[in-house]
Amino acid sequence: MKRLILSLVIAAQAVACTPGLEVDAPDGFAELEEQKRYDYRATNAEGVVLGVRRKKNDPQGDLAFWSGALDAHLRRSGYEAVEAHDVTTKDGIKGKQIRYHRKHEGRQHHYWVTVFVTGDQVVTVEAGGDEAFFGDQEKAIQRAIKGLELG
């Protein structure tokens, strides 16, 4: 019984703390707890959301592979790519950011997907929101992406 309890505690800590990933939430954003699909997710009052996933680099691929795979997937789903930028975190990890436009519930939305590859991990940072509110948060989101600590 003691072993079972100890195992549950350790597992709970592993999920909650997301070791090796630190995100500074932009001003005006609130972090959402108990995420399953995201390792981190935060939103502001206007519904602009920032989400981070960390997945195993399987199949083993570099930044070009993963950014290409994500871009192909989104284009096939009807996303319109408008810009692509190279980004670098404060730790010097290089990533690729692709910006899309997408109609969502009758409104034009902006959707940014940024990919980092760190050895055995693939980190995706998604940011999206209504076009009317997203523009005000672009700089804050950029700062948050550059301030990522991927471990």
Binding site: L32, E34, Q35, K36, R37, R41, T43, G47, V49, G51, R53, K55, P59, A69, L70, A72, H73, L74, R76, S77, Y79, Y100, R102, H104, H109, Y111, V113, T124, E126, A127, G128, G129
Partner: peptide
């Protein structure tokens, strides 16, 4: 016609705007 890529990466299909903005989803 564009070639359909069937990548064996299940989580790729989770990357989309709808999933990001669905805050009630856990």
């Amino acid at each position: 016609p564009p070639r359909t890529i069937s990548m064996p990466i299940p989580w790729l299909s989770d990357v989309n705007l709808d999933g990001l903005l669905s805050l009630g989803r856990k």
